[in-house]
Amino acid sequence: MEVRTIKVFTTVDNINLHTQVVDMSMTYGQQFGPTYLDGADVTKIKPHNSHEGKTFYVLPNDDTLRVEAFEYYHTTDPSFLGRYMSALNHTKKWKYPQVNGLTSIKWADNNCYLATALLTLQQIELKFNPPALQDAYYRARAGEAANFCALILAYCNKTVGELGDVRETMSYLFQHANLDSCKRVLNVVCKTCGQQQTTLKGVEAVMYMGTLSYEQFKKGVQIPCTCGKQATKYLVQQESPFVMMSAPPAQYELKHGTFTCASEYTGNYQCGHYKHITSKETLYCIDGALLTKSSEYKGPITDVFYKENSYTTTIK
């Protein structure tokens, strides 16, 4: 009895394709271990004539594949690729409408935090270190965002349907971005203890939790000093293409032309909904596939993004 075979390709990165001759009487799992086709788990399936010449994702289970996976995804987590594939199996079914010149995501599976993050990423200057993220990001900007969303979920250790947080998501993504040249110098002034300067680099240099107003941050924000008295913390120097200011959701007025974009969060910790506000020729609110415009805006804002380049204080 002759062994019926077909020729397929296996890959971990969709760049390096490895030619395989597979036995049609055995499952993919018996031949390769966990195997995925377009995100779908085909591990328990036997090869079919229609699979001839198709590319299958496999887990990096030998040295060659491990090197290829690390170079593309910059992670050695053995569960990463499987999590990416199972997320992709959902995100490829989502709709990605162009809204006001940006790629958004039609609401499904509690994905409003991903839509808000995706919209924000198209408006701030950011370059990702893992080629996987950078490639998928370019495709997302062009309207094909399924891979990018699935990668975000995998890097953030999230599953489809789980509630997510924009600030946490951005923080994970910033860790995989090139923020080497970003720098922030802060000064804390206390009447009792004097003053202390701190220099922050990388992710810490672009994120701040405690106030939404970048102007206020430049002037000074009140913080408790270690001595128990009130101290003032203010920005001395900022070198970065953008800054992200966050605070627990509270009524906040966004003035046209003073910011790049913002995240609105309605609801409580267990259950809520994100919308995205962007400042173009007027203010726009993007909620999944829905767009509304207004000249002014007041609502429960939790993150505001500002364009920056270089700032030095005039406070002496």
Rank of each mutant, 00 (worst) to 15 (best):
N187P: 04
K46W: 14
N178W: 04
F128D: 04
R4K: 13
K233N: 06
M244N: 00
G53A: 14
C285G: 04
G288L: 00
T278C: 13
S310A: 12
Q134R: 13
T120S: 10
S294E: 10
R83C: 07
Y284P: 00
H256N: 09
A115E: 03
I15Y: 10
L133P: 02
A115I: 05
A289G: 11
D77R: 05
T75E: 09
A154Y: 00
V67E: 10
F80Y: 04
K293R: 13
S171L: 10
C149W: 06
K298F: 11
N61H: 11
G82I: 13
V221F: 10
F9K: 10
V67P: 07
P97F: 09
D77T: 05
V304S: 01
G267K: 07
H48Y: 14
N111D: 03
K298C: 13
V188Y: 07
L59A: 11
I301S: 01
D303T: 03
A140K: 04
L186C: 10
Q123L: 05
N49K: 13
E264G: 07
L102K: 05
V42W: 13
V185I: 13
L119F: 02
Y284A: 13
V58Q: 08
T169N: 03
E144Y: 11
N100Y: 07
S86D: 14
H273T: 02
A87D: 01
D63S: 09
S295Y: 12
Y28T: 05
K218I: 05
F148V: 04
L291W: 15
I124E: 03
T313P: 09
G228Q: 04
F128G: 02
G82T: 13
C285W: 00
Y214R: 02
N110I: 01
T55Y: 08
P60K: 02
I105H: 04
R141L: 10
M244R: 02
C182Q: 00
A142M: 13
K229H: 10
L179D: 04
I6K: 08
A262T: 00
G220R: 02
S279N: 09
V189Y: 10
V206H: 00
A250C: 11
D13I: 06
F242N: 00
R4A: 13
I15V: 09
P60G: 07
E162Y: 03
G194H: 02
G202S: 05
A231Y: 01
G164T: 04
V243W: 01
I301C: 01
S263T: 12
G143D: 03
H48G: 14
S310K: 09
Y36M: 03
